[in-house]
Design a protein around this nucleic acid. Structure first.
Lengths: 132, 132
DNA sequence: TGCAATTAAGGGTATATACCCGCACCCATG
DNA sequence: CATGGGTGCGGGTATATACCCTTAATTGCA
């Protein structure tokens, strides 16, 4: 279990944790990364690809591909903006509904994890990760 | 910076941290995931795919694909074992040399991170991640 | 000993992720 | 008002990751 490499430890935790959230969200038909995107689009819509990439700190091309998946699923729209270079992202009605159903599931999973870590532990973890 | 979702925070940290280690290892021509694999093969060789997958806690098919990349790079070999179903993994001489050159780079990066977190912080982080 | 159940890999498919390059669009300056 | 530099995206390519299904080899039991 003990991994001397901090990065490997974080990556491993990332895989495990992601799997847990993904499994919880599975009934809604989305995974955690998609949930996060839906929520971020919802918070900032309409938002351009580049802007959202800055917000979620993902590579722009990565985000573009991820959003296209949401588009294929009928959960988000990608439309040209006033500046024709910009891709403007919004949620569809279906996207809003999925997000609404997903939120309580996310909260439940989040609570489980927090209980395992303890409130103080969770705060510490976030602080430590943030300082990386 | 503050992300209420623990999983998203961990994933973000994973991306950032991985990028840092990857950049450091770039002169040797491998990334952190490959470094980790080389080191684990080195420690347990000869080792079967399934066994190594258990050790590094990766999906077997994922590991198989990752090892094939090392094979293409000339750093590892995949040979049938006594049990013909098994794929036996070993390092090549080139693989051993790359690993040897990579270790001090990894140590340097690891030290940087640990200094940023503080010794106590690093230990806490690993403990928290392990308890996930 | 011969067949059924188990085990090990491999391939198909899909998402997440990042880097680089080319193209299209926009704007400011001459 | 034309052009050049800057900006926003998309596509190509590659790795990492996981799930499912198939094939092949082994093993254990009748």
């Amino acid at each position: 279990m003990s991994d001397p490499c901090i990065c490997i430890a974080v990556r491993k935790a990332s895989r495990k944790l992601t799997a847990r959230y993904d499994a919880a969200l599975e009934p809604v038909g989305i995974n955690l990364a998609q949930f996060s995107l839906l929520r971020n689009i919802s918070r900032h819509e309409p938002v351009s690809l580049t802007r959202l990439a800055e917000i979620v700190e993902l590579d722009r091309s990565t985000l573009g591909r991820n959003v296209r998946v949401l588009q294929r699923m009928g959960l988000a729209t990608i439309m040209p903006g006033a500046d024709l270079r910009e891709a403007t992202l919004s949620l569809t009605e279906a996207g809003r509904q999925v997000l609404e159903r997903a939120v309580p599931i996310w909260e439940g999973t989040q609570d489980e994890i927090q209980q395992r870590l303890g409130v103080a532990g969770a705060a510490q973890l976030e602080a430590l990760l943030g300082s990386l």
